[in-house]
Write a protein that binds this DNA or RNA. Sequence first.
DNA 1: ACCATGAGAGAACGATCGTTCTCTTTCGGT
DNA 2: ACCGAAAGAGAACGATCGTTCTCTCATGGT
Lengths: 187, 187
Amino acid sequence: MIDQEQARSRVVDAADALFYRRGIQAVGMDDVRTAAGISLKRLYSLFPSKDVLLIEVLKGRMVEWDEGVSLASASAATPRDKLLAVYDFLDGWFRQDDFRGCAFINSFGELGAVLPSVAAIALEQKLAFQHYVTELVDELGGSPALAAQLAILAEGAQTTAAISGRPDAAFHARRAAEVLIAGELAA
Amino acid sequence: MIDQEQARSRVVDAADALFYRRGIQAVGMDDVRTAAGISLKRLYSLFPSKDVLLIEVLKGRMVEWDEGVSLASASAATPRDKLLAVYDFLDGWFRQDDFRGCAFINSFGELGAVLPSVAAIALEQKLAFQHYVTELVDELGGSPALAAQLAILAEGAQTTAAISGRPDAAFHARRAAEVLIAGELAA
DNA sequence: ACCATGAGAGAACGATCGTTCTCTTTCGGT
DNA sequence: ACCGAAAGAGAACGATCGTTCTCTCATGGT
């Protein structure tokens, strides 16, 4: 038999991959069950509903995002380089062949209007990212407005790369960020 | 009885409002029928399937976007002001109480992976906008890279405003655009 | 006035999906 | 070895949804 904790993560991983690739409502619980290699009964004993499972998937995406951004900025020395590392992280992500946009933006568009919990976790993720950027901009001596601008660039790069299918949005966003940062530091 | 053309636009308008407010899969054809005040049979004689209706709705959104951007930039004299007018247009849109993000981004997230026609029209809209921005940037003497950056700012403002629910993303995007444009013109 | 065409209203159909239930099997404790 | 609890496999249920069909009625041409 499979360990409880291991079963949970297998279900979450399977659901994450399916939801992200196909969209949430296009994936049935039976698909999740098959991909996770688990019985339906056990699936429902681990997660009482599809909505709860979805929230768990999105929570997992939140920590993956945080880890990815942290890892990318780990080798950067200055706050400026840590900020720019965000766009390098995006660049690597966009180049993955299964990239299909930001899971939070996609989930918000699909279910945000009908499931308040989805809208709430999407908001939470975006606010957390804005907070991260704001702190680095503050260390750098920049204004909160600059932080908002840098966050908007990151969001725009994600949707642009998703829909166009080309990863160069990360490069353009990075160049724009460099100019905006330089502009503030000059003043 | 209702004129054929009038019936079509009533259906498209009703479907547009419902799809945009609640998401596409959350709206049944019966909801569209009721909102449009039409029989189900006539609805299906006008649009052979929900997918076709959705594409028609998105085509309508494309012309609305173009008209809105054109109208906003009509009073602007210089290419620079025409470019900045895009963000003013976004600002007005974000302030509408039924604003819920970009219909193309939302549709792409919900159905882009499963309906190629949806992915295609989302791509078409984004490319058309990028083309519009690129032409204005070119008139202004700027590079295609600047155009890409300005487009990314507009996309990012839309998702940020949608999820955060606050319209100030348009203001931040506009300020960033001003800096980026000034930066290129100085060089 | 009569009939044929087409439209309206909504029931009906078939498929899908989230969730639960049943039946069988497995397995650990004594 | 035996029994009871739990788990697997998947059938089943109830609801929803896209789409079609049926029945009725209005209407316009002759």
